[in-house]
Nucleic acid binder design. Structure first.
Length: 99
DNA sequence: GCTTTGACTCTCG
DNA sequence: TCGAGAGCCAAAG
């Protein structure tokens, strides 16, 4: 199993209405390649099956999205997550840390 | 096969 | 508050 697949595996575990960060994902993979995590999600081939929109920046910012940041925000809000000026509201409340 | 780029993050000033 | 620099890894050129 390659690096990318491990990223996608973890991403699939994020519950609806929650988010996690690139940093946490990388930590779970025992690596500091935060950028590589983003790179993997960017070209995620399992689009609907892997909720890549639930990954955000460590500072609570929305980050990027293959089909536009706007789209990402829409999807998140549809799950009950509120976003203000590209920032997650109550970020720490809904942050999923894989316990 | 080396260089650049990127949905990143941390530390300094 | 903000930007530059460094660190890290995978993919594309």
């Amino acid at each position: 199993m390659g690096f990318n697949e491990r990223v996608w595996q973890l991403t699939k575990r994020i519950p609806k209405g929650r988010v996690t960060t690139y940093r946490i994902l990388a930590a779970k993979l025992r690596t500091k390649a935060y950028r590589a995590v983003g790179n993997a999600l960017n070209k995620n081939p399992y689009s609907p099956r892997v909720p890549c929109h639930r990954i955000v920046r460590s500072d609570g910012g929305v980050g990027g999205f293959a089909r536009g940041t706007r789209k990402k925000i829409e999807m998140l809000e549809k799950e009950g997550i509120k976003i203000k000026r590209n920032k997650i509201v109550s970020f720490e409340k809904i942050l999923y840390k894989f316990n």
